[in-house]
Nucleic acid binder design. Structure first.
Lengths: 207, 207
DNA sequence: ATAAAATGAATGACTATTCATTCATTTTTC
DNA sequence: GAAAAATGAATGAATAGTCATTCATTTTAT
């Protein structure tokens, strides 16, 4: 059992508190949106006191930045693990990565609400844009590289790996948005079929 | 010349003022995000006084709702005009609608920033979700119907019109998001090629 | 002159941040 | 091993700043 968990509720380790507050922030943002999430809300959600966020995060801005970074790191780690464990072919890896994006742990209403909340504020906070760009660019390059391999293997003509990567990343983001806006009609299985349908149509020999 | 335009700057018609304030709102949201757009900002952007928004829109909430409705109506009208004037075949109509989404007047950084701003707040404001759903659903049905026609014409096997419609709408939203987040690398032409590439791969006889 | 439109200072509600105090835990002392 | 002292996490009331909204007054149009 981790040390932090053995401690009483009153004094948890600094790291555990930060984690607890970030999770409360995700819940609050997904319930109320960024605009109407107050530090009081976050503290209440975490079952702690008014001043607690400033104690651990210095400022509201910083809490939000760290929350975004937390989600970005979590995704990054899943992405890398997936890339590593899937295979052996590029086609398997590409499919595994697309499946990852639609897994319940990634394509989760709470988390998506936070992502879109931040994207909506991207103009106001250049820090968000910078962070998003840095992470996303890396993923796009991986997808492009895998596409290139598949294209070479299949001797596909007339298709462009960059183009495929663009479509796949846009498609994923778009599917997430539907999940956020029309959760009632949202169907994880149908979404995956959409992605597979696309892969089949561009790489018919592989899927 | 329209009547409104002939009036002096000081006292414009009610409609012209509302329009002016909605445009100022779009500018402000695209610059600062929804979260930090104040009524003072909007008034200043419009070159008017502090209390002006409440005079014409009653409340901030109402101003934001009307702004969203304005954008939605503007798009609706473009969509209908495009559907009507393009053709004659379903394939032409479908392409024209996809091209519409990437035209500078629609795929415009300022407007997209507003859309995503609202989407980010969708959890907090059920009114937004309702409005988005109502409009979007109508477009999806049109796209699906056109896809069905194309499928029938081309006797395409193994493809599902609903699926195509989902992909196309997700793809568009995703391309808009890239335009918002990475405006530096954003390339309208490449985006259109991505969409065309998809159409070609699912409807090879038509595109 | 009257009505309509616009102004902008004033109000009041809300909320991020601060900080003196409380409390559980750990360390030191004897 | 028990009592005393120190630590630092957590609290929550108080502060300070922001901003939506109101409204008495001014400006403009007819």
């Amino acid at each position: 059992m981790a040390v932090a968990a053995t401690k009483s509720n009153r004094t948890a380790s600094k790291e555990a508190r930060r984690q607890q507050l970030i999770e409360a922030t995700i819940k609050c943002i997904s319930k109320r949106g960024i605009g109407s999430t107050t530090l009081g809300d976050v503290a209440r959600e975490a079952g702690l006191s008014q001043g607690i966020v400033n104690l651990h995060f210095e400022s509201k801005d910083n809490l939000f930045n760290e929350t975004l970074r937390y989600l970005a790191e979590e995704y990054k780690s899943l992405f890398e693990k997936t890339l590593e464990k899937s295979g052996p072919d590029a086609a398997d890896k590409l499919l595994a990565l697309m499946e990852l994006d639609l897994k319940p742990s990634v394509c989760d209403q709470k988390k998506i609400a936070v992502w879109f909340g931040f994207w909506g504020e991207v103009k106001a906070m250049p820090a968000y844009r910078k962070m998003c760009n840095e992470y996303d660019h890396g993923y796009d390059r991986v997808i492009e590289r895998l596409s290139k391999e598949i294209i070479a293997e299949g001797k596909y003509d007339n298709i462009n790996a960059k183009n495929i990567a663009d479509v796949l990343s846009s498609l994923t983001n778009g599917l997430w948005l539907s999940c956020l806006i029309s959760p009632k009609n949202w169907d994880r299985h149908a979404a995956l079929e959409s992605v597979k349908g696309y892969l089949k149509s561009v790489f018919p020999q592989h899927y």
